[in-house]
Every structure is written in C-alpha cells, then in structure tokens.
Amino acid sequence: MRLFIDFVPVLIWAVLAVVMVVGMLVASWVLRPHVLQNSEKTSSYECGEEPIGPARISYPYNYLVYTILFVVVDVMGAFLWLLAASSFRLSEIVVWQVLVFVLIIMGGMGFAMKNMPETFLSGQETLTLYRKAKAEQASKEIESGGH
C-alpha cells in the first residue's frame, strides 16, 4: 500500500495510454465510411503493388534466435539495473564481477552471431504444411456437409 501509492502516476499513465489507443480506434471506426465494401476497397495498399497470396506467410526460423537474444539481454539489463540502484557499484570487486557477468553473456551472443547463418531454414515447408492441412479441412467439410 505504502509503495503502491508511489506508483499511482504510472497507473494513471497506463490508463491514459489504453484510453488513447481505444479512442483512436473507435474514432476511426466512427469516421470511416461503411459503404462500398468491395474487394478493391478492403485490400491493403502496398505502394501501388497488388497484394498476392495470404497474409499468413511463414518466416525463417532464425528470427526466433533474435528474440531469444532479446530475452537474454533483457534479463541482463534487469540484473544490471539492480546493481545500478546501489551505492557500492564502483567498488573494485563488484566491477570485476560485472565484467565477468557481461563477458559470459557476450560470449553467448558472439556464438549466436557467428553461427546464425548456418541455422537458416526457410519457412517454405511450414507454409506447405499449412496449405495441405487447410485443404484437408476444407475437403472434410465438403464431405461431411455434402450429404
């Protein structure tokens, strides 16, 4: 409670952010014309290019490695934030410990950066599997509903 009072401005800020986003969405829904819903109007505008295929494309798997690197740096930042709030952060032994800590994690990042091109797998087969499953589902629906 005593601590929670200090964070009330953060809460107000979060509520303001949510209200602003929802308000913009509602305002655009209100101001939008609701007639002329043909496929030309509802297709996404890509600088004059006509969009081809579904929006659910399959990305290469090594994007996940970038996310893992982000999570690792996130945890490292949390530990260093705890240290930065203290008053003994400049004593000699703590500086050496921080150096070892950062070097271990940077070693992992360097390993990831060095091996990243070898983990490249295009997501093509994922998309193929998805299309096959979708076609199976559609054929099953046609079979069950046709009789």
């Binding site: 999570v71 945890v75 949390a78 530990f79």
Partner: peptide, 10 residues
C-alpha cells in the same frame, strides 16, 4: 527463478 524461466521458455 524469473531469469531461469526466461531461459527455459526460450
């Protein structure tokens, strides 16, 4: 525990 949770989720 939270840092290990991040690692095992990855």
């Amino acid at each position: 525990v939270i840092s290990v949770a991040a690692a095992h989720t990855a």
